[in-house]
Design a protein around this nucleic acid. Sequence first.
DNA 1: ATAAACCATGTACTTAGGTACAGAGTCAAG
DNA 2: CTTGACTCTGTACCTAAGTACATGGTTTAT
Lengths: 155, 155
Amino acid sequence: MVYIVLNFPSPLVGEGSGEGGEVMETISIGKVAKKLGINIETIRYYERRGLIKAPPRKESGYRQYPAETVKRIQFIRHAKELGFSLKEIAELLSLRIEQGVTCGDVRKRAEAKIADIEERILNLQRMKNALSKLAKECKGRGPVSECPILEALEK
Amino acid sequence: MVYIVLNFPSPLVGEGSGEGGEVMETISIGKVAKKLGINIETIRYYERRGLIKAPPRKESGYRQYPAETVKRIQFIRHAKELGFSLKEIAELLSLRIEQGVTCGDVRKRAEAKIADIEERILNLQRMKNALSKLAKECKGRGPVSECPILEALEK
DNA sequence: ATAAACCATGTACTTAGGTACAGAGTCAAG
DNA sequence: CTTGACTCTGTACCTAAGTACATGGTTTAT
């Protein structure tokens, strides 16, 4: 396959070795993957899903990621670990002023997310307390025969 | 199909209308599902996965759930909402003294879970702070053009 | 200049966590 | 005593979130 060849000097740097005259520091998809400990395919998947915008390419067609996008991918991963779905993460990432989005709307959505997160924190704290109690009881030799965390999240 | 018929009076009550002489209050799978707002199939799925033990049956083969199991299912659902996987939830539910499990082991596992949860709480708090800041900036009319939550979870 | 290592696209496969029937037996209300 | 609502087992299907090739161009280190 032949890739479209840009007929003007690319503003990308790439190659890591930071010589002078750079416009934007970028790294290859493989480097991003290694740096974040994820698969190359996952990064391309996020692009397909629209979670990150398509990065600029080299003349060869190779993706070259600017630092901003790398940070964005890292955010996605961390949020994922926290239990957010990709859909929720997309919502979080869209919380900013853009064309056709009012400030009030952003604030409203942010506040809804905050309430949601507070709820989760509360429940995690309940879970933590239940586990602490369990660990303590266990130290005290009491017979912990029932399932003691069941009460943790009762609302 | 013919189900195994128990040839002794069942100790179950069922049917909801609490007459005297009950040994264990139990409810049908449909009632459990409605009560918890989940599908019947999900409950059976949890049974197949070993997250809940197979409940006693009526002579007809119908499952009859004791309150304890209902609580357990509810716990699973809440923990799921918090972002725990079914595997993690199984681990949480197994945190108790049983045959062949030492108290020290349970304590160790509980403490590991606690550390894990604390980490999550911290990250959620970071996310919340970032969102609060975003909402505040938005109130103040500042141009929130960049993506301001990216910094939220940087470690 | 050539092999080893990368990367591109496209398509298929996987795993987790359910959901949705089909076909058949059971229960409860009129 | 029948009809509609439940439940059973088993199997197939579904969505989310990746993962794994196959095939073919690109880069780089020797």
